[in-house]
Amino acid sequence: MTQLLEVSGVSVSFDGFKAINNLSFSIGPAELRAIIGPNGAGKTTFMDIVTGKTRPDEGSVLWGEEHVSLLGLSENRIAQAGVGRKFQRPTVFEDQSVFDNLMMALKKPRGPLATLLFRPSEADVARVGELAREIGLADALTRKSGELSHGQKQWLEIGMLLAQEPRLLLVDEPAAGMTLAEREHTTDILVEAAKTRAVVVVEHDMEFVRRLNCKVTVLHEGSVLAEGSLDHVTANKDVIDVYLGRG
């Protein structure tokens, strides 16, 4: 099976500090993957590189069947190519309604003129309603998203990601600050999403990762320390050293 995303030999440093050091990583088209690691392991920087926010000093990031390099592309081109990203803190457009948020994210032409002339069709409205049901916000479509609770905002953001119909979903700490029930719902959404696309979840919380029940990549000091099932990596001596010995 060919890989959807192949990151190889990537390094980046900020003012002498090597945030990512010769990192290699790949994921298939319909796969759920969790990335764990202590603070400063380079998880967020890794996402920044894939989404085009940060340019690496060396290495390559190849995308899709045609192995297009993502390095030269701007953030919006990468997003249009099919990489969706959810930030650590919920970032939805609080001044606008849930409906507008989702409609904005819906996969449509992204140019200014097309956007200016866009008028939602019946199908679009239906699709938004369907997404809202999926994330449990069907009743809140007309509410301003600023009025939502923290967990609802997280879901709305995931819903916006799904609306984008990305082939790769990068999710940064989705469960942070959620109640237990909300976490379970979040897990369901992610697992469901991973059936049709690649999903990378960065998470601190081992319990949450265990519930995702997927392959795990451990990052440490900017490179991959271990990879495999959660039981496999937690048994790894290096991982124990990093998490318990010095952590």
């Binding site: 989404t51 953030e75 919006n76 970032t91 939805v92 457009f93 609080e94 904005m104 994210a105 992204r110």
Partner: peptide, 14 residues
């Protein structure tokens, strides 16, 4: 206006 980076990650050429 509210979050330029987020719009960019939605795929809009800001």
């Amino acid at each position: 206006r509210d979050d330029e980076a987020r719009v960019r990650f939605l795929g809009y050429p800001v």
